[in-house]
Amino acid sequence: MNLTGFLALTEREISRFLRVWQQTLIPPVITSVLFILIFGYSLGSRIRDVGGVSYLEFIVPGLVMMGMIISAYSNSSSSVYISKFQGNIQEYLVAPVSYWQIILALTIAAVLRAMLVGISILAVSYWFVPFSLHHVPVLFYFMLLTSLLFAFAGIATGLWASNWDQVNVFSTFIITPLTYLGGVFYSISSLPLFWSTAAKFNPILYMVDGFRYGLIGVADVPVVYSLMVVFVLTALFFILCVQWFRKGYKIRA
């Protein structure tokens, strides 16, 4: 097995986003701070407690998930798309590295970037609203699986996309709306029945809700459900990536 090849690719993928850390690590943290200032402080002061916690405390887990989702997705989708576009994806297609090693290297970099962003947002938020970590394994599970899920989704989109707009279509029309509707800013139990039922078809709800449970111990959905939903989705996207890489979908004619 070519462990060196795998490590070199991982190193390359990590250096790719660290090289421009100002563009890859800082913006999501700033966005979160803005949300905290706008919603938490100015508007949130008029909102009463949600499920027994302050509004500010309620939105922090959602902000962390939002930052992590976008970071993991952007990292792998742009890496795959750009290297496909520039042709340098061929550098590792002609090398003696296997498909799963390529997927793993791309994934490790995306997960690392998401984790760095997630931990930074947590740290900055703590300065505004001190919280205790309610259930660390659950908390970590949602951080890890959510970044894995969106790393895989990013790889798949990067392979599928034929132009840069298509890379953005998925984030603009699917990820962003679903994140905003996914209970980042409100509890779905406060919605009318129809909408709270509709919200349950939104996969991001389970990530935000499960992570919120891990962080502050408050959840709308039983946490076991959330654990399972996220696991199944991650597995599905993983299988999709493996299949596409094996076939060389859009990378090998």
């Binding site: 690719l9 290297s83 550098e91 590792y92 090398a95 003696p96």
Partner: peptide, 29 residues
């Protein structure tokens, strides 16, 4: 096998020595 392709398929923003460094790695050096 080593391939010199017809089209330039290199990361435009990577330095010469880094291109070689990473590719050497992919081949297990």
């Amino acid at each position: 096998v080593g391939l010199v392709p017809q089209e330039f398929n290199v990361d435009q923003f990577e330095k010469v020595s880094k291109v070689l460094y990473f590719n050497g790695g992919y081949f297990g050096l």
